[in-house]
């Protein structure tokens, strides 16, 4: 029998439960399904989100995988669809398709040090991984979050960053590219923090998410610290349409980012990332 929930091409209508501003043009939407149905997902996966009458865009989950009834997405208003989504208030409807794509390699991280490198909005797709790591803290070695953004006013999830810092079992370093405001924190690019982070490169897994140029520099800096390319994972972004590897819009060399990614191991990406205009 046909089941719409099992069909990745069939959208489900959901409602906005809460909406919170997390930056000058960044909003976090908490969504609820009809009859409060759970949507189980892996940290790192994404949904296709539809703003009715405007279009559909891929957005990573930014909530806690342990709470599948709370579907959370953090969205930056950059184009017509994302801008429309960020304007949806409590009670408004939208449609989702997913969860889609690959997640962060959480089981592979077990027993190892974990370095998370986030740039700008890239902290949002990494947040589910942080929730997972902290919920089973004893399973992992040293955990370090290095987060860089443009300026102090654009720092995402400030309260959570403070709470994570206070735990004492997660090293959190935040840096901004530049500032004209009073700011006691670090200033400089996020890749500059990597050399100062404490981890054992022979038993470390790195999870990296942010603008592609930043991820390339971050992967180079991690490799310079001794990490093998196979121990570095990036979350890639491309022009996804179908979300299930049929249409080819998100082709990246021999990969389809929506199906083979968005989370991909750096040894599969390194050469292709250096090809211009790909």
């Amino acid at each position: 029998m046909y089941s719409p929930a099992a069909d990745p091409m069939c959208p489900r209508v959901v409602r906005v439960r809460r909406r919170r501003r997390d930056g000058p043009d960044v909003w976090t939407l908490e969504l609820e399904g009809h009859r409060d149905e759970p949507i189980a997902f892996e940290a790192g996966q994404f949904n296709m989100l539809t703003a009715f009458g405007i279009g559909e865009v891929p957005v990573s989950f930014s909530g806690d995988p342990a709470h599948p009834r709370r579907i959370v997405h953090t969205i930056r208003a950059v184009g017509p669809v994302s801008s429309a989504l960020t304007r949806l208030g409590p009670g408004a409807s939208l449609a989702i398709r997913g969860p889609l794509g690959t997640g962060w390699p959480m089981s592979e991280a077990s027993g190892r040090d974990v370095v998370l490198v986030a740039g700008g909005l890239g902290l949002a797709p990494l947040r589910p991984a942080i929730y997972r790591l902290l919920s089973e803290r004893a399973r992992y070695g040293r955990i370090t979050l290095l987060y860089g953004t443009r300026s102090p006013k654009e720092i995402l999830f400030r309260r959570e960053l403070d709470a994570w810092r206070k735990r004492g079992d997660l090293a959190v370093e935040v840096t901004v590219d530049h500032t004209v405001e009073p700011w006691q924190g670090h200033v400089g690019v996020v890749t500059g923090l990597i050399a100062h982070a404490r981890f054992d490169p022979s038993r470390t897994l790195a999870l990296v998410c942010g603008p592609e140029i930043m991820m390339r520099f971050a992967a180079d800096a991690l490799a310079a610290c001794g990490l093998a390319h196979g121990a570095i994972y990036l979350s890639m972004e491309r022009n996804m349409k179908c979300g299930i590897g049929l249409c080819g819009h998100c082709q990246f060399g021999g990969l389809l980012v929506c199906r083979d990614g968005p989370v991909l191991r750096y040894d599969r990406l390194a050469a292709t990332l250096r090809v211009r205009e790909l």
Binding site: R150, D177, G210
Partner: peptide
Amino acid sequence: VQRLHAARLQLLDVYGARG
């Protein structure tokens, strides 16, 4: 060289709207 690389990244403004 490290500071030059950092300056290039800052100049690219990678976290801007297009990033």
